[in-house]
Amino acid sequence: MSILSCEALTKTYVSGGREITVLRDITFELEAGEVLAVTGPSGSGKSTLLGLLAGLDRPARGRVVLDGHDLSALTEDERARLRAEKVGFVFQFFHLIPTLTARENVQVPLELRGEDARARAEDLLARVGLAERGHHYPAQLSGGEQQRVAVARAFAHRPRILFADEPTGNLDAQNGANVVALLSEMNRELGTTLVLVTHDPDLARRAGRVIRLRDGEAVPA
């Protein structure tokens, strides 16, 4: 059974009185454990597609089925709960909570579910090589370190699928490579499906599948 599928997914915005189609008729199916890269020039709708697939946004037409749930049938809160259970995120600009320490940041997804997370958070931090830095605040960490914390956070609740929006976009080559390696490792060990939006050709090359977008449409490789 596919873990993620979408059908005729279309998204439009109204801008300056005109309707602009950002995504047009995207259809595909993804099996559990696969790694999908979504590539394309900027403005091609990559991040929009990601948002729709993760249930952060609603399409104009078409539907998304995530782990057997039709997202259009769920309310905001139900989708949030689904995310808390099954979905992990990594962002281009890290988006850590500045008033929490690294360890506390990693704990957030579990604490939102009411679970005690201290031990697991420390475990994960060790996993991403930041065992000593748990008590530091994001402001005290470098870009690469912050992204690694974000990766730890993304895996805290053992999600089935992980969405990453330009995870290396704000990192230098070395750190970017580290993050990519981490993600691949997690994918291999835990069987987490990865959906990566990126315009980094290296990252795209490592993916099992690639969807190329141009002007909102999927184009052949």
């Binding site: 952060l56 905001e76 709960r81 995310r83 808390a84 957030v108 939102l112």
Partner: peptide
């Protein structure tokens, strides 16, 4: 928005 993304409900 970040917390919503991570799965927080409105009530939370």
């Amino acid at each position: 928005a970040l917390l919503r993304t991570l799965g927080a409900t409105r009530h939370q």
